[in-house]
Amino acid sequence: MRQTNALQALRDWSTPGRRADLVAAAWLEGETRVAVLAEAARTTRHTIYADLKSRGITPADRPKGTPMTAITIDGLTGAHLDTEGTTILEMVRAYAAKNGTDGIGDFESNLVRLSYALGAYNLIAAAQAAEQSARRDRDRALHLVELQWEALSTATAWHAAHHAYVVAVDAARTAIATWAAAARAAVDAGWFPVSQAEEVYRERILTAGHPPVERYDLDVDTESARLRDALDQAHEHRARLAGQTLTAAPTGAAR
C-alpha cells in the first residue's frame, strides 16, 4: 500500500497542470513573491507568471504586504492599560450619561477585560507574525543552498558558482540564527495569562475576523541546532567532493 501511494504521488506530480495548481495554492496562501515561487518550483519567473495566469491570477493585483499592526476594538488596543484607563473612564462616563448607573459595573468590567485581552493578543500576534516571516526566510535560504549546489554540476565558471554556493551556506546559517531569535521571542510572548482574557479573545477578537494565534510549544534551541548541524554536515561533505573535483581538474580548468 505504501509503495502504491508513493507511486500515485509521483504520478500526481507529473500530471499536466499540477505545478500550476501548487503555484496558485502558494500564492493564495500569501506567498506573492514571484522570485520565491520560482525558486521553490525550480523553474523560471516567466513560467511562474504563466502558471499564475493559467489559474486566473494576475500578479499585478498582488496584495501589498503590511507589517503586523495592533488591532482595535471599541476604540481599545490594550497596548498600555494604564493609559487606556483614561479612555475606559470616559466611555464609562458616557455610558452613565446615556443609561444611568444601572449596569455600569458590568460595562466597565467588560471594557477592562477587553483591553487586557487586546494587549495580550497584539503582543502574541506580532511575535508570531515575526517568527513566521523569519521561518519563511530561513526555509528559502536553505532551499537556495540546494539550488546553488546543483548549479555547480553544469557551471561553466565553476569557481564563481562555488563561491555563490559558499555564500548561500553562510546566508542560511544567518537565517537560522535570525529565525531562532524570532522564535524565542514568540515562545516568550506566551499565551493569554488568564482564562477570561482567552474567552474575550474567542468571543470578541476572533468573531471580529482577526487572524487566530496559536500556543507556541517549540524547543527552539533543539530545532535550530538540528538545522544548523544538518547544514554544516552537508556542507562538509560537499567541501570534500569539491576538493576532489579541484584536484582532478586539469590546470586552467574549472575557472
Rank of each mutant, 00 (worst) to 15 (best):
R2V: 15
R2A: 14
T4N: 14
L10S: 11
R11H: 12
D12Q: 06
T15A: 06
R19M: 08
D21V: 12
A26D: 10
A26I: 06
W27I: 01
W27R: 02
E29H: 04
E31S: 10
T32Y: 07
R33M: 03
A35M: 00
V36N: 02
E39A: 09
A41D: 08
R42Q: 08
T43I: 12
R45A: 03
H46G: 09
T47W: 08
I48A: 00
A50V: 05
D51L: 04
L52A: 05
L52T: 07
R55C: 11
P59D: 04
P59N: 04
A60Y: 02
P63F: 09
K64G: 07
M68G: 12
A70H: 05
I73L: 09
I73N: 02
L76R: 00
H80T: 12
L81A: 02
D82A: 13
T83Q: 15
E84I: 00
L89T: 14
M91E: 06
M91G: 01
A94F: 04
Y95L: 02
K98Y: 02
T101W: 15
G105R: 14
L114W: 03
S115Y: 00
Y116A: 05
A117L: 00
N122L: 02
I124P: 03
A126N: 10
A126W: 04
A130D: 09
D137F: 09
H143N: 10
Q148L: 14
W149P: 12
L152I: 11
S153P: 00
A155D: 09
A157R: 11
A161F: 07
Y165Q: 11
V167H: 06
V167P: 00
V169Y: 03
D170A: 01
A171K: 09
W179H: 08
A180M: 09
A181P: 06
A183C: 05
F192K: 01
A197T: 06
E199V: 04
V200Y: 00
Y201K: 01
L206C: 01
G209A: 09
G209Q: 08
G209W: 11
D217C: 02
S224F: 02
D229A: 15
A230Q: 11
A230H: 10
E236P: 03
A239S: 13
R240W: 10
G243K: 07
A249F: 10
T251P: 08
R255M: 13
